[in-house]
């Protein structure tokens, strides 16, 4: 809905003398301020890129920080040939992909049941899903810390300090949101469609896979992108639950290993930060419209 509204744009208007003159000025001012805001919004990522292309000597020399006199790819070469950095990248990639698959399986099926198959308590559960989405991870990490210790005592399974623990933890952040979006998308599909399928003898699972998933595909793509972005960016859980360098995911790895005491190797830190920001940015660049549709759907559909 919101997407369609954005894509349509304004209808063309006839000229009405003074109103049109006002609009020309409004347009100029709009562009002027948009450029200012764009500078503000894009300054940090651009500065990341500038710094990542500099040598350490140039960074520590008191020259113009916004200008590169000797562009070099040395930081990228150094970082990508470090085994440690590649381990962070691999951990992050595996965790994010597994979380995306797990989240979409759980949430699409559950959202279908909640939106269409109404069972005792399903309305309460839908509200519960929404409330869970509002519970922040800053509230949960301490009890989870204690629960992991308990699991280790009772079942002899060490959940602490393993990157794969994140595959269990991240769905708590992604599933409620993905389910919430999917309930909204599924609820907007006309009832006649699944009734026709059921009359034709389709099972519930067939109705889901043959009708609902193809029709709600934009919603599924939006939810997938979000899940990936959240899983890739998560910082608190890996910081609290992993410590060995071989078990860290990318954001935590960059912050804990590249910042050593007072010696800040800013060229490498910015290179790492930029590489860490790259996967979500690339996905966003290609699937921007789905991303924005999902963003507005998450808070407005219900």
């Amino acid at each position: 809905m919101a997407n369609a509204a954005i894509a349509n744009g304004e209808p063309t208007r006839p000229n009405y003398g003074s109103i049109s003159r006002d609009r020309t000025w409004a347009l100029r001012w709009s562009y002027f301020f948009l450029v200012l805001f764009a500078i503000f919004f894009l300054m940090p990522p651009v500065y990341m890129l500038i710094t990542s292309l500099k040598t350490s000597a140039e960074i520590s020399a008191a020259t113009n920080p916004w200008w590169i006199s000797n562009p070099t790819l040395q930081n990228y070469i150094d970082l990508l040939s470090q085994n440690q950095f590649l381990v962070f990248f691999r951990n992050s990639a595996i965790v994010s992909i597994c979380v995306v698959i797990l989240t979409m399986l759980i949430s699409v099926i559950a959202a279908f049941a909640l939106a269409r198959m109404k069972f005792w308590g399903s309305a309460t559960l839908a509200t519960g899903v929404f409330l869970t989405y509002l519970i922040p991870e800053t509230l949960l990490f301490i009890p989870l810390f204690k629960m992991f210790a308990w699991v280790n005592e009772v079942f002899d399974v060490q959940l602490m300090n393993h990157w794969w623990t994140m595959i269990i933890l991240y769905p708590t952040l992604t599933v409620p949101f993905a389910t919430w979006i999917m309930i909204g998308y599924f609820a907007s599909i006309p009832k006649e469609l699944d009734e026709a399928a059921l009359i034709d003898g389709a099972t519930w699972m067939q109705t889901l896979t043959k009708i609902f998933i193809p029709v709600a595909l934009p919603g599924i793509i939006a939810a997938t992108i979000f899940t990936f972005t959240v899983a890739w960016a998560q910082f608190l859980y890996p910081l609290a639950f992993t410590t060995s360098t071989s078990e860290l995911v990318l954001p935590v790895g960059i912050i804990t290993t590249l910042i050593k005491g007072d010696v800040f190797n800013w060229g490498q830190i910015m290179t790492g930060a930029l590489l860490g920001a790259a996967p979500p940015l690339i996905i966003y660049a290609f699937l921007m419209d789905y991303y924005i549709a999902g963003l507005t759907a998450g808070a407005t559909k219900g």
Binding site: Y31, L281, Y291
Partner: peptide, 29 residues
């Protein structure tokens, strides 16, 4: 306010801070 055909480009550019993982962009800051 700006013409509809330019809006997508501006919107895309202005949403970049939201897409970068916060821990990474905070490092830049």
């Amino acid at each position: 306010n700006i013409p509809a055909k330019g809006q997508r480009k501006w919107r895309g550019m202005l949403l970049v801070p939201w897409v970068i993982p916060p821990a990474m962009s905070t490092l830049a800051w």
